[in-house]
C-alpha cells in the first residue's frame, strides 16, 4: 500500500459534513458553507460571508481538518477552518448535531479599525449532500 493510500485508509469519513449548508438566519454573517471531501481523505471548505451592507463575499476555499466525536470512531463529525480575509481572521469551529451544522466563529480584526474581536455562533441546514 502506498503512503497516500495508507493515509486515505486512515482518514475519517466526511459523509455527514460534505455538501452545501445554508444559514438558518438569512441575515447572519456567514451565508453559505460548501464542504467538499476528496478521495485522499481531506476536506476543503468554501464560505460565503455577508458584509454589513448585506453583500455576499467569497471567503475562498481552505483546508478543513476533520475530527470525530470519539477517539475510536472513523466517522467525522466536526471540522476546523481558518479564513484569512486580510482585514480579519476567522477561526471556524463546526460540528454536526441532529442534522444541524453548528458553527462557532472566533473573529479577530487585523486592521486598525478599532473593532473588537468577537465570538459568534450560527446554525446551518444542508440543502445538498456532497
Amino acid at each position: 500500500m502506498t503512503a497516500a493510500a495508507e493515509t486515505a485508509a486512515l482518514a475519517l469519513d466526511a459523509a455527514v459534513l460534505a455538501g452545501e449548508w445554508i444559514n438558518t438566519n438569512a441575515e447572519a454573517g456567514i451565508a453559505r458553507i460548501v464542504c467538499t471531501s476528496h478521495p485522499d481523505g481531506t476536506m476543503r471548505v468554501r464560505c460565503s460571508g455577508r458584509t454589513a451592507g448585506g453583500e455576499i463575499e467569497d471567503w475562498s476555499e481552505v483546508d478543513a481538518p476533520l475530527y470525530s466525536f470519539t477517539f475510536e470512531s472513523r466517522q467525522a463529525g466536526a471540522f476546523s477552518a481558518v479564513f484569512d480575509l486580510g482585514y480579519e481572521e476567522v477561526r471556524m469551529q463546526a460540528n454536526v448535531k441532529a442534522g444541524v451544522l453548528v458553527v462557532a466563529s472566533f473573529n479577530r480584526f487585523k486592521d486598525d479599525s478599532g473593532r473588537s474581536n468577537y465570538f459568534d455562533r450560527e446554525f446551518f441546514h444542508r440543502i445538498s449532500k456532497g
Binding site: E6, T7, L10, L12, P65, L66, Y67, S68, F69, T70, F71, E72, S73, R74, G77, A78, S80, Q93, N95, A104
Partner: peptide, 19 residues
C-alpha cells in the same frame, strides 16, 4: 470549552473534537 485534538502521527486513535 471545545477542543480540536490532532495527533502528530497517524495511529489507532482518531483526531477528535470535544465540547
Amino acid at each position: 470549552v471545545a477542543t480540536f485534538v490532532t495527533f502528530k502521527q497517524p495511529g489507532a486513535l482518531s483526531d477528535r473534537f470535544t465540547r
